[in-house]
Amino acid sequence: MSHHIIEAQDLHYSYPDGTHVIKGVSFRITHGESVAIVGANGAGKSTLLLHLNGYLRPTQGTLRIGDYPLTKRNLKSVRRTVGMVFQEPDDQLFMPTVFDDVAFGPLNLGLPLTEVEERVINALETVGMPHLRDKPPYKLSGGEKRSAAIAAVLSMSPDILVMDEPTSDLDPRARRRLIELLKTFEHTKIIATHDLDMAVDICERTIVIYEGRITADGSTLELLQDETLLERSGLEKPLGMQSCPVCESNEKKVIKDGLHSTGRRR
């Protein structure tokens, strides 16, 4: 199982116009971990994610996916290992129907048609939308689009799931459903997000990025309570961890040891 590790060493990246976005990032993520990458807008989260499947090549430093450093030669197998769910599902659902879209990856893998179909059906069942298989993507709701995009990645049976802002644009119920779905996945998960409450729910580990550098890397619960750290990184304490103004004024009760008991944590 060692081939699920992702290891970055002193990663730097500058865009062609010279903007230095990633300024020396190192981390190691091992099999089965769920890691949140949090940071303010423009911190470099999305750019970092684009390295994980080899779309961007670091200008300096190395990145290992599995047992090998990422090179042009093993790009194809890396992309099979790392499934990427983008922030905007419309960009990812480019085929005419949900079915075609979910089948896109497996067909590119060159699998026999019966297996492709099987994988598509399995993936759609996992995300709970087998009945929508023949719908064109533009007819789906925001939550359905997100699920379809995830199914499209699952059908390639990746070992590692990388997601960019999976809960943006979702209404509370769709968001909750998505979180429950993600919790059931046993994949190694790397999730870039502003939704710190979701990070608390899904990821045991968090990496905080600020202006292209890692400012903290550790247990989600600890990091997200560290107000000075969050302040320094342009973030705020997750709502679930903030003391509730209503309860506070009523009972003068300040919660110090972590989570406000709203029944959100199980």
């Binding site: 684009l50 499947n53 779309y55 194809k76 992309r79 099979r80 790392v82 499934g83 990427m84 983008f86 960009d91 990812q92 480019f94 085929m95 075609d100 089948a103 896109f104 990856g105 067909l107 590119n108 893998l109 048609l113 492709v116 179909e117 499209a152 990645v153 390639m156």
Partner: peptide, 16 residues
């Protein structure tokens, strides 16, 4: 990018 991530190699394959 999304296409590349899912193994796009210049060929579009459709099952129909």
């Amino acid at each position: 990018l999304a296409m590349c991530c899912r193994g796009f190699d210049g060929q579009i394959r459709i099952m129909k």
